[in-house]
């Protein structure tokens, strides 16, 4: 049974990261933008794990747990703020957040 080479995982990670960046920039819905960021973080996790295999270390596995914990904390805070936007302007469109202007 042949192993999938690490470069495949790295390429997949890079593609997922770029999809996340594109989604963040193109989409206007706050939840979708937030999901795009989560996709970017998971692309990073995949990259960490692929490198963990090339270097044959467990360290990177632990980093992935840290990243997941931080992502969870970020989600808790972010969703609360998104709820706040919905309560104030009854929409999830980021363009409705335009009260601060120079």
């Amino acid at each position: 049974m042949g192993m999938v080479p690490a470069t495949h995982y790295l390429a997949l990670g890079a593609v997922l990261f770029v999809i996340g960046v594109a989604g963040f920039i193109v989409r206007r819905n706050v939840i979708t933008m937030f999901m795009s960021v989560e996709l970017m973080l998971n692309a990073v996790n995949l990259t960490f794990l692929a490198y963990a295999r090339t270097w044959n270390q467990v360290d990177a596995h632990i980093f992935v747990f840290f990243v997941m914990t931080v992502a969870a904390a970020e989600a808790a805070v972010g969703l609360a703020l998104i709820l706040g936007l919905d309560r104030h302007s009854q929409t999830l469109d980021i363009d409705s957040a335009d009260k601060l202007q120079g």
Binding site: F24, G78, L81
Partner: peptide, 28 residues
């Protein structure tokens, strides 16, 4: 205030992902 926090959060999380990808590549 909510708008301020939301903008800070979204762009902050976005930039964190860049930084983290940078760390992953440096680790590689």
């Amino acid at each position: 205030s909510n708008e301020s926090a939301l903008k800070y959060f979204l762009l902050g999380a976005f930039s964190t992902a860049f930084m983290l990808y940078g760390i992953a590549l440096l680790y590689g």
